[in-house]
């Protein structure tokens, strides 16, 4: 219900709480474009659902590691255009792993097929990194437990290692060489990592949408917070990402919808056939020193229909990236302070609750059947306004701890 006291969501408390039952998005029978089902990796719709489900604060703590990694990477790029390439000679022993050289975690997964015949692998999809990788047999050093059978490259008739002399190999941030086979390494902000052979094989996004000779990492030494996912799909803007590698086929176009709860499903599409109704566009900005990331221009924030008094310079100085793998939006402190103040004022009739990890504006809705939450809107360059869904405004720990789902950076220049 909108329009009360400006612009508010009026909702049932129960709609905020996660369900234990999957409520799948209704799919039309036929699409003329590639469409994958997106699920939250910890929810009941996920093929990877784990027991026990991580606590909300655990997910936020992992998110803090990812954001620290993003900051380090962007800061490092500002002083050094490119990381030195290192050469090693053995899988898992000579490739240097560098904190913050890439970024990971993320909570949304899709299932795609690798090899011939294809083997389904459920992977995390991530617009904040480039390299697609999966765990591979024989797991020369070690693999973590995953839901799907671990991919066996020797059983695929189309698998081939990439040569050390290939441009694919020189495009890797971290690479090595073993008997002329190219080795890759990725390490993420939470110290998760994958190391193995950089290879090519057929990637099946759907039964009819097949990408031959797709370059990906075949991981022989993998460890970290990937849950039971088989690996990761890199949808960044860099040379080796799925988006760039399929540019001729899909024109560099992809789209996704992240579901409102962990018990519902969304989609990931490739190509121009995405659902186009009501879509408004803002300019995509790129930075040569950090080509992986998609930047956009955040200009202003509104709460309950009232634009907050934040100078555009505050947003311009920092810059903004969009990332499917970061959970909570981070704002310059000046902007976050204004948002928090306006939100707290609009929520002054509710009992406050203690902070939840990085979230400092929380409410206890115990005893309430419905609540009214002020709408939050983000305004981007080109006059595009994104009025957030309620699921995009709040982060629910429990009914007694529901928090504003924003956090601040360290300082305005961060």
């Amino acid at each position: 219900v909108r329009g009360e006291q400006g612009s508010y969501h009026k909702i049932s408390i129960h709609s905020l709480l996660p369900s234990k039952v999957c409520s799948s998005f209704k799919e039309s029978a036929n699409f003329n474009f590639t469409r994958l089902k997106v699920t939250h990796r910890h929810g009941p719709c996920s093929p990877l659902r784990s027991h026990p489900t991580p606590l909300p604060e655990q997910i936020l703590d992992e998110d803090r590691s990812r954001v620290d990694s993003l900051r380090r990477r962007i800061a490092a790029a500002a002083t050094s255009a490119k990381l030195d390439r290192q050469r090693g000679s053995q899988v898992g022993s000579k490739i240097p792993v560098r904190p913050g050289s890439s970024v990971s975690t993320g909570n949304y997964v899709v299932t795609v097929g690798f090899g011939t015949p294809k083997r389904d692998q459920t992977v995390i999809f991530d617009t904040g990194s480039d390299i697609t990788w999966i765990q591979c047999q024989p797991c020369v050093t070690y693999c973590y437990e995953q839901q799907d059978p671990i991919f066996n490259p020797s059983a695929s008739s189309t698998y081939a290692n990439i040569s050390c002399s290939s441009t694919y190999c020189s495009d890797l941030d971290i690479s090595g060489c073993s008997s002329s086979a190219c080795l890759y390494g990725v390490q993420y902000g939470d110290n998760s990592f994958s190391i193995g052979f950089f290879a090519q094989d057929t990637l099946s996004l759907s039964p009819t949408d097949v990408i031959p000779k797709f370059p990906f990492g075949c991981g022989e030494r993998n460890r970290g917070l990937f849950g039971k996912a088989a690996g990761l799909m890199g949808l960044g803007h860099g040379k080796l990402s799925l988006v760039t590698q399929t540019y001729q086929k899909y024109g560099g176009v992809f789209a996704y919808c992240l579901p409102p709860t962990s018990s519902s499903t969304g989609y990931l599409t490739f190509g121009t056939g995405y659902p186009s109704s009501k879509v408004k566009f803002t300019p995509m900005v790129t930075d040569a020193s950090t080509p992986t990331f998609y930047y956009l221009n955040l200009m202003a924030i509104s709460v309950a229909g009232q634009r907050l008094p934040i100078s555009a310079k505050v947003f311009n100085d920092a810059g903004t990236i969009i990332d499917s793998g970061t959970v909570i939006t981070r704002l310059p402190p000046t902007a976050y302070s204004a948002l928090r103040s306006a939100f707290r004022q609009a929520m002054s009739s509710y009992k406050t609750a203690s902070a939840l990890s990085i979230l400092d504006t929380c409410y206890d809705f115990t005893g309430h059947s419905t609540v009214s939450i002020p709408t939050v809107a983000l305004q981007f360059g080109g006059g595009v306004t994104m009025e957030l869904d309620l699921s995009g405004t709040l982060y629910v720990g429990s009914q007694s701890q529901v928090c504003l789902a924003f956090a601040a950076n360290g300082d305005d220049s961060d």
């Binding site: 998005f25 176009v253 919808c257 969304g266 009501k278 566009f281 499917s324 994104m386």
Partner: peptide, 30 residues
């Protein structure tokens, strides 16, 4: 750097068009 995280993107059709250098948002998509 500011980061637009995945909570805030929920239910939007988020469109990346690298060739036209634009990012789109469509509400209520899922």
């Amino acid at each position: 750097v500011g980061i637009l995280g995945n909570v805030q993107q929920k239910t939007f059709n988020v469109v990346y068009d690298v060739s036209k250098k634009k990012i789109g948002f469509g509400p209520g998509a899922c």
